[in-house]
């Protein structure tokens, strides 16, 4: 066990293990920091969603808390004008590429994007940016769930469990840049791939990209 250290987050003194990543320390102590891509058990942080910015005394620029090992005496602020500006831009960027319309989404009220919006007082619609929505076909080939790539935020949670927890490796990130997406080998429907339809990916999806068919039907009925 590494040694215990004391740090201050938003004026609150917190005990933590040296070297632990700040994001988890904050979350474990009831301090919310927005995040989508962070995986507690992963060997290396992805640091791809760019939502978990904080400011640390002595560091010139905001840093991602998922990559920051805590050190004794660290003084952290989760809300500063610079942090808020970065988070709100990153959030709106993600929304600009996400099919909106929470009313029709099975993840309505349990979606991480909604949590972030609520916690940080952000709007769930585009205010400054242009919609970059992708019109990708929905894959409803699996028995129990649906994959809607237009709702995916590329957090990589599903890819990670598929490779590291389940050990199947049916899905991965393919292509590059704006074309990057989660897909199977050859971009065939999940049912035609080596996917075992274990459903673990659906459990970890923070948004409405991977959803259970029953939820989807319920949503359709209520809507």
């Amino acid at each position: 066990m590494s040694k215990e250290v004391k740090i201050i987050i938003d004026g609150k003194e917190i005990k933590a293990r040296e070297g632990e990543k700040l994001l988890w320390v904050a979350l474990d102590n009831g301090i919310y920091i927005p995040h989508l891509c962070a995986k507690r058990d992963a060997e290396k942080p992805d640091a791809s969603c760019r939502l978990c910015f904080v400011e640390v005394e002595g560091m010139p620029n905001p840093v991602t808390s998922c990559t920051l090992p805590v050190k004794d005496g660290m003084v952290v602020r989760t809300r500063t004008p610079r942090v808020d500006r970065l988070v709100s831009t990153a959030f709106e960027l993600l929304l600009s590429n996400h099919r909106l319309g929470c009313g029709k989404c099975p993840k309505n009220r349990s979606c991480e994007l909604q949590t972030i919006a609520k916690e940080r007082g952000l709007k769930l619609k585009l205010t400054r940016l242009r919609p970059l929505e992708r019109d990708l076909p929905v894959d409803d080939s699996p028995q129990g769930f649906i994959y809607d790539p237009s709702r995916c935020v590329l957090c990589g949670q599903c890819v990670w469990v598929c490779h590291n927890k389940v050990g199947v490796g049916a899905i991965g990130f393919v292509r590059r840049g704006i074309e990057r997406k989660m897909a199977t080998f050859g971009e065939v429907p999940l049912a035609e791939s080596r996917c075992t339809q274990c459903g673990e990916c659906v459990e970890v999806c923070p948004v409405g990209a991977l959803t259970k068919k029953e939820e989807d039907e319920k949503q359709a009925e209520s809507a």
Binding site: S48, T89, A90, L93, L129, F173, G177, I178, R180
Partner: peptide, 13 residues
Amino acid sequence: CGKCTFCRLGTKQ
């Protein structure tokens, strides 16, 4: 590469 939000979507915007 498309990994991070700012570069993937920010440069596109």
